[in-house]
């Protein structure tokens, strides 16, 4: 029998959950196809099938979805709304499943729905998904547990690698950005590359333990309720004594980031910071120049401080 093919768009929540998704689907005997790294063609596809005012990250997502049409049996578009403890996601994640359905009515989609506030836990979501795929409950349960472990191990690996970098002698910059922005080949990688070319150590704000970071975020913002911003805010507190600067990177016109970055820029006075806003017409050269001048400033500041001592 031919294996059922599940298409996964390489955008948005892919960067958080791909390890778990892949493990789950493959253990249940399905084939996984992931769309390629974002390129200009995918961004253009997404821009054409999106509402103008959608954020660039969502436009990229739409491009990946469209790329997968015809290359798999189902396109996987999960919906995650809220987490344990009441934190929610940006409303883009509430709507994305219905948006792709309305935009590509002929395509077939597969999804799960995680919304703790409504009693839809992650475990329930996977068990429903497994049932839909025709797998036996016991097999689904095992696949879920294994997938969860795979994700945990993967995250731990990333964490320890980053912890090692914290001790490095080089200049260190914390990149505060959603994983789907900074790890994106087209819009994120140029930023990381520019930093690495200047021998700057790059720390990512999404890597430290999420639950810890959400707790820690309270010191900088007591009313923040977006899970994916909270963890980034917490990481600032976590790393603030180890880093020489912060780069906020966001896509235009991200709702949560528009306010979160404003608040943080006003609250954090002692750390050098800069903001990079990326939209569909961004230029790599412009980003490089801005990063170079930011690093110049940090270095000058560091020298000044050394003199003062």
């Amino acid at each position: 029998m031919k294996k059922v093919k599940i298409g996964i768009p390489k955008a948005l929540l892919y960067y958080k959950y791909q390890v778990m998704w892949r493990s789950f689907f493959e253990e249940l005997g399905l084939e996984v196809v992931v769309s390629p790294n974002t390129n200009k063609a995918i961004l253009d596809l997404g821009t054409n099938s999106s509402i103008d005012e959608s954020c660039t990250s969502a436009k990229i997502y739409m491009g990946h979805v469209e790329w997968l049409i015809g290359k798999c049996d189902y396109i996987f578009v999960p919906r995650i709304v809220s987490y344990e403890g009441g934190d929610i996601t940006c409303t883009k994640f509430h709507g994305i499943y219905d948006i792709v359905r309305a935009t590509f009515p002929a395509a077939k989609f597969l999804h799960y729905n995680v919304d703790y506030a409504e009693g839809h836990t992650q475990e329930k979501a996977y068990s429903k998904l497994g049932k839909e795929l025709g797998a036996k409950p016991a097999a689904v349960k095992l696949a879920y547990e294994n997938a969860l472990n795979a994700l945990k191990n993967y995250e731990k690996g990333l964490e320890s690698r980053q912890e090692a970098l914290v001790c490095a002698e080089s200049l260190k910059v914390l990149v505060v950005a959603h994983p789907y922005n900074i790890y994106d080949k087209l819009i994120g990688e140029p930023i990381v590359k520019a930093l690495e070319e200047l021998n700057v150590g790059v720390l990512y704000a999404d890597i430290p333990d999420t639950i810890d970071m959400c707790k820690q975020s309270k010191t900088l913002s007591d009313s923040m309720y977006w899970r994916y911003n909270k963890e980034l805010v917490g990481a600032i507190g976590h790393y603030k004594d180890d880093i020489d600067g912060i780069i906020f990177m966001a896509t235009f016109p991200c709702g949560p980031d528009s306010l979160a970055i404003e608040l943080l820029m006003r609250k954090l006075k002692e750390i050098p910071m800069t903001t990079l806003i990326v939209d569909s017409n961004f230029g790599e050269a412009g980003i490089q120049t801005r990063i170079e001048s930011f690093i110049d400033i940090i270095e000058a500041k560091k020298k000044e401080a050394a003199h003062a001592v």
Binding site: E53, T91, I99
Partner: peptide, 9 residues
């Protein structure tokens, strides 16, 4: 401009 829920709709 940019209202996510309404852009979603």
């Amino acid at each position: 401009f940019g209202c996510t829920p309404e852009v979603n709709s």
